[in-house]
Design a binder for these strands. Sequence first.
DNA 1: CTCTGTGTTGAT
DNA 2: TCAACACAGAGG
Length: 366
Amino acid sequence: MDGSCTDESTTSETLSISISPTSAVSSFPPPTKSPESPLGRVGSGSSVILDSESGVEAESRKLPSSKYKGVVPQPNGRWGAQIYEKHQRVWLGTFNEEDEAARAYDIAAQRFRGRDAITNFKPQGAETEADDIEAAFLNSHSKAEIVDMLRKHTYDDELEQSKRNYKIDGLGKQNRNPGANNVALSGSDRVLKAREQLFEKAVTPSDVGKLNRLVIPKQHAEKHFPLQSGNNSTKGVLLNFEDISGKVWRFRYSYWNSSQSYVLTKGWSRFVKEKNLKAGDIVSFQRSTGPDKQLYIDWKARNGSNPVVCSVQPVQMVRLFGVNIFKAPGGSGVAEGAGGCNGKRMREMELLSLNCIKKQRIIGAL
DNA sequence: CTCTGTGTTGAT
DNA sequence: TCAACACAGAGG
């Protein structure tokens, strides 16, 4: 676990990859002779095929070369994947199927050479949304980590899991310019997701009192939460907001003719109670910039002290490795003495520590 | 023993 | 960079 923390975006990066002990790649049951591919290639593996009759032991022992870039045949009929960087070969593992190896090469190529690297399968100019997510996933892991996943055949699982947890956490706390797009990190694997800050409000005593409602300033309400002219005053609509922990809060949103106010009603008191909101605390609303337009809600205590959990120092966002991450204030002081902390804030601290631990490692490129 | 993945070289 | 080839030595 030494050089496994190297990372960078698109420039040169330290290798220190493959030269590790050979990893155990054993995941195929029978060493049965693999029936050869439908390709009209040469005889299988290195086993020489001496024709029953004529014993021309000529050059019958050639391995079938692959039609895919980065794929090399193995003597036993399997396929190896490799990529070169800095005049050195980086081994990506062995695979039963030729195209599996080709896919492994493609993934490595995108991590090592960037998004428009030449690959075996990916079309050149098509950038889908799924590709965006995968690109973020790739860039949030070091080359060594990606290579390790490929060699262990765990890449697909890791990618899929990261898609699941792409829950994000709070913006708004350290956000200096509301209204701008931001990138946040997920807890365990740092997959990115952009959100747009909509607005914040310091809650009033009545917002957290017995009225069980939050008044949305008209200006923000009409801009971000437009109501259809039909059901305006009456029923309103139900809106779902996700909080930092991934929990979804559903509030009824409507317009009160009596007070000429836009309000969140049903469901709001529960939020106040669970978060232990006090007058003066800040609630902030975000929305995914993606097509889903998912809404998010977050909150913070007025002074930085957190009512429910423990006091927390302000957090600042920094940009590292081309990715925005949060950085803990004092040194790398992470969650060590965090015995008293819990809940959301704790999650955030964990996140911070993870990111702060892996630091830049200078590479002496030549 | 089987099989991976490195050493190495020549081609592009 | 890249793949072809041979085979040392890792692993069961």
